[in-house]
Design a protein around this nucleic acid. Structure first.
Lengths: 341, 341
DNA sequence: ATGAAAGCGCTAACAG
DNA sequence: CTGTTAGCGCTTTCAT
């Protein structure tokens, strides 16, 4: 590794081009109001010296960092077992880089990390934050709001039931669930069970709400709480089958859970979809397409969600004044019909 | 959002504590050579004002950023369909934050992005880079080496066959493959097929090598190239079955491919493991444990790989001089026995 | 052991 | 239009 040999500074470029630092700075930052011949000379010098602006110095004066933090708070390891965040990150990354912003990733694993993240955000290293707070009781969102950094949340934060002016992007979990259950009902199924996700997450709670809205009557025997994992969904499915041997459909809160349900159904000799129709949620391709039978499911465009979060934040950062639509953006879902229902 | 109200500076703390900026700086950075009573007073002032050092200002003088870039070059979307990178990121993140370093994530999607990444790295925003270069012909690694940033690679880079002094961390793909095939052979299987990964990736190539080493004879009819996805693995499995109807085992280059193979085997009426034994690679839990039957597979500790990469890089950064063991670190794999073989 | 002062590399008034 | 001049907030000699 060659010694970094202190990269050239503005000064050096200026000398080389025979102009002042200010002029070089102008050219480097867009070249407005500098006459063509000079611009050209400076460009040349920049090229020859391989000049790259020092971001630290720039930030020091502009107070801009062109960087945003992505905070993923996830106590459970589960999250990394599905491609959810990966997709979201990709969407975010695309949008951010399209606007020359860097993505600083902050993964948290527990209470200690919370303090660290709060400190980091308060330290003004980044211009804004994109936060995924999945749990109702998560203290992180509060800390972050306290840090005074413009923030957009991924998923409806549980603690902001309408009042606070948080900005968030979410899928239409409730609407999607309604669609799923309506499909099942339209198929003539009458005993439609629901395997929920962890109800301390708004996405799971909203899906349950959607289910209930369509079902009308509240039939607790048809609902069992689970945790979005296939393993626990198997347990849930068994419980459901024991309680209601005559159920003829199940709406699982996500595809992973649906795949667990499918397994139990097969093991118990129920044919899908003939005896029991199954609908999942997410349209996580590797799971939904590869399950047996392939899953009918509610698709949400995760990558797009990420992109929109980034876009919202960037817009907020641009117009320095807080403006327009503080609330939430809710993305539509679409039903994807495959073999399981 | 309250106006950021310009955070307190060192100056402010100094005033408050009745000392000089230099003293505050010393305390903030460890407090060596400052007498107890003063240290206490400064600490107090820092606390009261909620002072957080401005990283940009600090970097400007120290030329240190306490940040490292993680570059994930992935032309294919496939990668995000499995939790591989997520796990690796988590390992990296843990190690990095344990040493007060930030993680800047750079995702690339094509040629344009390469230039951008190279520029970013050359721009000296980060102290080092962790790079995942999975393809033989990837130009990125070269660009990065050119940028003169200390780098550790994830996975053996294809272009560095022994010569260049690259640092990398990899699983023992070849050894793991050998173990898998030996198990199958030990089970009395004699016609062991192999579904490979994309052979322009060293991991896939190494696994194939391991397979061949144990098989001894080169029997091309038993090997078909695939791409790590379940869908294409199905195609591969069918081809294999057509060419060698009497095969009695298959070693798939990863769990996803194994799951595809399993599906075709079932569809063709072959019992697993009675008729055909199957072994995968990765031990990607949601896939390996949930497949039917559960997969016997070669486990690699992805998270640990990430952690070690970070550790290596951090060590490199500490001792400013290039020192010791430049080569590669190869992590052992372990065979996990489940029902499929 | 502490303080004074000199920049780090850049942008942003302000002159000219 | 271009150059001059102040700093941005911090670390780091160098005195004291």
């Amino acid at each position: 590794m060659t010694e970094t040999a202190s990269r050239p500074t503005l000064e050096a470029v200026a000398a080389r081009a025979g102009v002042s630092r200010a002029t070089v700075s102008r050219v480097v930052n867009g070249g407005d109001g500098v006459r063509e011949p000079l611009v050209e000379r400076v460009r040349q010098a920049v090229e020859e010296l391989g000049y790259v602006p020092n971001q630290a110095a720039r930030s020091l004066v502009t107070k801009r960092h062109d960087a945003v933090a992505v905070v993923i708070a996830e106590p459970e390891t589960r999250v990394f077992a599905d491609p959810f965040f990966a997709l979201q990150l990709r969407g975010i990354s695309k949008e951010l880089t399209a606007h020359d912003n860097q993505l600083v990733l902050l993964l948290t694993e527990g209470r200690d990390d919370h303090a660290r993240v709060a400190r980091y955000l308060a330290g003004g290293h980044v211009d804004g934050a994109l936060v995924f707070s999945l749990h109702l009781d998560d203290p992180l969102p509060g800390l972050i709001q306290g840090a005074g950094v413009p923030t957009v949340f991924g998923g409806r934060p549980g603690w902001s039931d309408g009042t606070r002016d948080v900005v968030y992007v979410d899928s239409d979990n409730r609407g999607g669930a309604r669609e799923a259950v309506r499909l099942l009902a339209g198929l003539g199924r009458t005993r439609i069970a629901h395997i929920t996700g962890p109800l301390d997450q708004t996405s799971a709670a909203d899906r349950l709400d959607g289910y209930r809205e369509v079902m009308g009557v509240n039939e607790p025997r048809l609902v069992v709480e689970s945790d979005f994992t296939p393993g626990d969904a198997e347990r849930a499915m068994r419980e459901l089958l024991d309680r209601c041997p005559d159920l003829d459909a199940v709406f699982a809160a996500n595809d992973l859970a649906a795949s667990g349900a499918l397994r139990v159904l097969r093991e118990r000799g129920r044919r899908v979809p003939e005896d029991v129709a199954v609908v999942g949620f997410d349209d996580m391709l590797p799971v939904a397409e590869q399950s047996d039978p392939p899953l009918t499911t509610v698709r949400q465009d995760i990558e797009e969600m990420g992109r929109i979060m980034a876009r919202l934040l960037l817009r907020r950062l641009d117009r320095s004044v807080a403006d327009e639509a503080p609330g939430g953006v809710v993305l539509p879902t679409t039903l994807v019909r495959r073999a399981s229902a």
